[in-house]
């Protein structure tokens, strides 16, 4: 079984700062991490491989420094890391990103064997679109399973896979055929720790590095900014609320504070008060 996991190196969003005057993102010194959602995909891939045999290839598109994140996945036990990097990819939106990744997946199939499963995370924390996975699936004509919470059964001989998928208001139990693209739901597993042995190997491992030409892209207008139908016209910081919270103060300890708070709540939100009385009456 050949499994590919798409990961993205992202800025640790908790630490993003916006320039107070120019409204630009200040990246200097902002640490990067592997998109947290992608770790659930990676762990699931590693578990499948451990159980069924085969290989896990990790793929990312990003700047040369993204090799660092790839190396990290090798310490967790991934078998191969592929970095897709080219200035032509800069500024890709989801359509252009899925184009580049799908092209790279074509070369991965040719060089290392056709992937039976491609995993992506549910979404990234910087882009946050959840659209790159479905985009890749469509381009490669893979069967698409998004928001998968559990892989129930894999039958390689029959070429079938059964999964639980998080749908609105419930779980769908779905059966489909390989090859599939799975976007893994968060909090579905716990990422393993890397082993020292793997860490030593990873430090010396080669990260396969390809550019646009390497993966056979002839039409560069499909890449990066030029290949992106969406255009970001404006980036700005959310307007800060001008007034801060009104701090409630009252005598009489917690009970006094609670009473004062309820009065204030009911005054500001009369609808809440009447709803509550209705709720109480119906109970």
């Amino acid at each position: 079984m050949h499994i590919v996991v798409c990961i993205k190196q992202v800025p640790d969003s908790a630490q993003i700062r916006v320039h107070p005057v120019y409204n630009t993102i200040m990246r200097q010194g902002v640490p990067t991490i592997i998109n947290p959602y992608d770790l659930f995909a990676l762990e699931e891939a590693l578990r499948l491989r451990d159980r069924l045999g085969g290989e896990v290839t990790v793929l990312t598109m990003g700047p040369p420094t993204a090799a660092e994140s790839l190396r990290k996945t090798l310490t967790f036990g991934a078998d191969r890391a592929v970095l897709l990097t080219d200035r032509y990819f800069a500024g890709s939106d989801t359509l252009a990103t899925s184009f580049a990744l799908a092209s790279a997946l074509g070369k991965i199939a040719a060089d290392f064997g056709k992937p039976d499963i491609i995993f992506t995370g549910k979404q990234t924390i910087d882009g946050d679109t959840a659209q790159v996975g479905p985009g890749i699936a469509k381009r490669l004509a893979y069967n698409q399973l998004t928001y998968v919470s559990r892989i129930v059964e894999t039958d390689l001989d029959a070429g079938e896979i059964i999964v639980e998928r998080r749908a609105e208001g419930g779980i769908q139990l779905l059966k489909t055929k390989f090859p599939v693209l799975i976007t893994m739901l968060e909090a579905t597993n716990e990422m393993r720790r890397g082993s020292i042995e793997n860490a030593l190997l990873a430090a010396r491992a080669e990260v396969v590095t390809w550019n646009a030409t390497d993966i056979g892209i002839e039409d560069l207008t499909k890449c990066g900014l030029r290949g992106s139908p969406t255009i970001v016209k404006k980036v700005f910081a959310p307007t800060a609320r001008s007034e801060k919270a009104q701090i409630i103060q009252a005598e009489g300890g917690p009970t006094g504070l609670a009473e004062a708070l309820i009065c204030e709540i009911f005054q500001r939100a009369p609808g809440v008060e009447s709803d509550l009385y209705e709720f109480a009456a119906s109970n």
């Binding site: 993003i16 924390i125 016209k233």
Partner: peptide
């Protein structure tokens, strides 16, 4: 929102 809500961006598909 982008970057986890620390920024907003306005996007067009022209």
């Amino acid at each position: 929102p982008t970057f986890g809500g620390s920024l907003l961006c306005t996007i067009f598909t022209l």
